[in-house]
Simulated scan of single mutants.
Amino acid sequence: MTDATFQDGRETPLNLGAQDAEDLKVISTLTQDAVFPVTELAWRPGEHRFALLLNRFRWEDQTAAERRGRDYERVQSLLVFDNVLGVASQGIERSDNDVILSLLAVDFEPAEDGAGQILLTLAGDGAIRLQVEAIEAVLKDVTRPYVAPSRQAPHHPE
């Protein structure tokens, strides 16, 4: 019998939770440059839940893809926020079902007693603001990774 090695491991889908601002920073990093149609936003006031179905760039795989000379990947992921009391947006044309949005960052603006606002910053000056009782978020991959259509890593000109 031999000890397991790093190479014996296999990639598994992400399934991460966030319960504080530091956790949310990790989710923000992993969802940066995720794209999604405006039709994949869901606000369920009765359940205090807001969810997005994202096509996220696999930042956690970028170095391995470059080192192995293979294509970059995306994966469909659910980003779900619970304890949501209200949702507001700006710069989003909800009536145009063909609009594709790009998520740049997920930030938390604290208020009293753990409450606050989660701000989803979108490319093109769009934003979604979630009023929350507390941070409770989940990022979960729901499909197998697929080759990024652009075959390139997103970049942000300075």
Rank of each mutant, 00 (worst) to 15 (best):
S77D: 00
I27N: 01
L85R: 15
D98T: 15
L14C: 03
V75C: 01
T2A: 12
A134D: 07
P37G: 02
A105S: 15
E60Y: 07
D98F: 15
R74I: 03
A21Q: 07
V147E: 03
R58V: 00
V132P: 05
V132C: 03
D8H: 11
L54N: 02
T5I: 07
L54V: 05
A88G: 02
R151G: 03
L130P: 11
P157E: 06
A4K: 15
E22H: 10
L30E: 00
D96W: 11
R129V: 14
Q90E: 10
D33K: 10
A21V: 07
E93Q: 14
G91F: 14
T31K: 10
V142A: 01
V147K: 07
A64C: 08
E60H: 14
D8K: 04
V106T: 08
E93N: 15
Y146M: 01
P154N: 12
E158V: 11
A153T: 04
Q131W: 00
M1Y: 15
G69T: 05
A64I: 11
L120H: 06
I135Y: 10
V26R: 09
R44A: 12
R58L: 01
V142D: 01
R70M: 04
L104M: 15
R10A: 12
I128Y: 08
L122K: 12
H155W: 15
N97Y: 14
A123S: 13
L85H: 13
P154D: 04
H156K: 12
R56T: 00
W59H: 10
V138I: 11
E11F: 15
D23T: 00
G86K: 14
A42W: 02
G126Y: 11
V106K: 07
V84P: 04
V132N: 04
T2S: 09
S89P: 00
E133Q: 12
F50V: 07
K140H: 08
V147I: 14
Q131K: 09
L14W: 09
L122D: 08
A148C: 12
F81R: 02
V84F: 09
V132R: 04
L14E: 01
R49L: 12
W59L: 11
A123T: 01
S150L: 10
V26E: 05
F6A: 11
V26K: 08
A88P: 05
D71P: 06
G9K: 15
Q19T: 03
A127C: 09
L101S: 09
D71G: 09
R44Q: 14
A21Y: 08
R70Q: 13
I100P: 05
V26F: 06
R151F: 12
E66W: 11
D61A: 12
I100V: 14
A4C: 12
A18Y: 08
M1A: 13
D82H: 15
P110T: 10
S28A: 03
Q131E: 09
A42L: 08
L78V: 01
F108C: 04
W43F: 14
S150I: 07
S28R: 04
E109W: 10
R144Y: 00
S150C: 05
A111I: 01
E40F: 13
G86S: 06
V142E: 00
P157C: 03
L53E: 01
Y72V: 05
T121D: 11
L103E: 00
G17E: 05
E66T: 01
Q117Y: 06
Q152T: 06
V26G: 04
R129H: 13
F50D: 01
I100N: 03
G116D: 07
